[in-house]
Design a protein around this nucleic acid. Sequence first.
DNA 1: GTTTCCCGCCAGGTC
DNA 2: GACCTGGCGGGAAAC
Length: 375
Amino acid sequence: MPVFSSGDCESRQALYCRKDKSLGVLCSNFLRLYNKDDIESIGLDDAATRLGVERRRIYDVVNILESIGVVARKAKNQYSWKGFAVIPQALEELREGFRENFTMSSCFNSTMDLGGCKSVGSSDLKLEAQDFLSGLAKNDNRREKSLALLTQNFVKLFLCSGVEYITLDSAATALLGDHSNSTAMRTKIRRLYDIANVFSSMNMIEKTHHPETRKPAFRWLGWRGIPVNGFPCPTSSEKSESRKRMFGTELTNHDPKRNKVESSISWMSNGSLKYPLTVKQEDSENSCDRSEVEQFMNHEARGYVFGPFAPESVTQQTVLAQNGARQNQDWESLAFTHHPHYHNQALRDLFVHYMEAWTSWYTEVAENKQAQEVS
DNA sequence: GTTTCCCGCCAGGTC
DNA sequence: GACCTGGCGGGAAAC
């Protein structure tokens, strides 16, 4: 017998309710069931029985949780519970993995000349970055198409691109590399919905709408710790908006227009692109109550040392402080002149961000070189 | 009409 | 060969 009863659809008892069956609700129930100190081992059959679902569904949840380290496979049919504490480290590893891959891909080596400064955002850079992205997705074997890997790549898109809003079709395009294959696109989007529902149930992303296109999009919230009652702490906007989704419910077809709820997150606009004020920034919008934060401070993904893909707000501040506004402005105009204009939003956002990261990095290196020459 | 995503088939992998 | 794992896409609920 299932250990958890339905939520939203209780009033419509005895009728089939799709929401009760959603992966997000299942994930919430799964986490409630196993997020305990004395849990060491998770049997898939046991989980399926206790949650009242088919084993097949447990695989989906477990694979996604495994990709961010919450559970780890022990043996056939057996997983070990690692807990939420490992999430920040797992996210950091994903970020680092992206950075290493990108560095190793020789992208910068082949296209950037420190002395002569080949044009930022050149077609070379565009092609190399495209290679990297398609490399994420072009492998055809089973492992490469796994839900776990797709989950990690989806997270990387958020962590490493600096893009705040990602639509699932643009994510699918970026991860698939070939948007002309409509069947593959549809399949990829279905899986991304699965992943998004699980992450939504953990409050790691939220469903909203892209401010410009108004298309349904997801916004990265990051991991904000688990308060005492076992539920991720809500943002201040969530606290003030009781209609918003809570842990244990899902975001299925959540529409701000219909619900008259708009994200209260601040924006930093730069031309056509918008970036978060940084997800890890400790502002009133994105942080938990201090008491809650302190309890989980050790698990928070704070204090990142941003690499070449640091959010714009970080890189720009650094450059401005070090070199003054003028040089930065020059780089921006150069980058704008040369940046590739993609129809695909995710790719466009990524490449624009690469250019800005490169601008920041080059400026820093040039300054160091100048300092060395002086000394 | 579009978006969302449950459901279960079935093929590949493991024991 | 039996069972486990999980990719995949049909098709229906939700909007």
